[in-house]
Amino acid sequence: MNSVILQGATRLLVALILLFSVYMLLRGHNLPGGGFIAGLIASAAFILYALAWSMREAREALRISPVRLATVGALLSLGSAVPGALQANPPFTGLWLFLGGGDGEKGVPLSTVLLFDIGIYLAVLGSVLALFFTLEED
């Protein structure tokens, strides 16, 4: 497809959609959202980019192969179980680290739960794009 309107809008939208996906990822701990849905949103950004320009350019924009991205993401999610294991907790027990807390402030929460969600995000993004690129290029 070669539409100036679509290409112009995509320039703006891709950045917005990707930003929104990160917002959904971080929001997901206590509110609707999370790694899965955020991964789908992020893949929508790349699919839009691919439709406006081409598969090849979308692949280049992603920089690494989608299958590799999915594998890394899934391994990251599995790896988030390891810190809990070291402390003899049941699998997938959430462990928390608060950065810069004190004086009634809790600080920035970091957790193995977030690590798990980021892994899911990458895994979903990678597998959806792998499917899309394969289907479109055949």
Partner: peptide, 20 residues
Amino acid sequence: GWLLALPFLLPIAVGLLAFA
């Protein structure tokens, strides 16, 4: 806890490595 989770954690981990 870990023993009961291993029947699926192990094949997932092994599968990912084998896939890689």
